[in-house]
């Protein structure tokens, strides 16, 4: 984190950014890494996909 480098494999940090729960330093680090084309593509695809979850899973309510 000191040099603002984030690996794509830092799943939880990136997950916090997707959730809007990352701190300022983490958000800046992600922005810094967006200059890397591979990182940018991976993160932006994930960002778009986060809106697509089907949360209406009735089975979760009924099964037990």
């Amino acid at each position: 984190m000191e040099n603002n480098t984030i690996q794509i494999s830092n799943f939880e940090l990136l997950g916090r950014v997707l959730d809007g729960k990352a701190n300022l330093k983490e958000r800046k680090a992600v922005l810094f890494n967006m200059s890397d084309a591979v990182f940018e593509e991976c993160f932006m695809v994930a960002l778009r996909a986060t809106t697509l979850f089907n949360e209406k899973v009735e089975a979760y309510e009924t099964v037990q």
């Binding site: 939880e12 990136l14 997707l18 991976c42 993160f43 994930a46 986060t50």
Partner: peptide, 10 residues
């Protein structure tokens, strides 16, 4: 959700 999404994208 976000954790699995990042893993899937990668």
């Amino acid at each position: 959700n976000s954790y699995v999404t990042i893993i899937a994208s990668r």
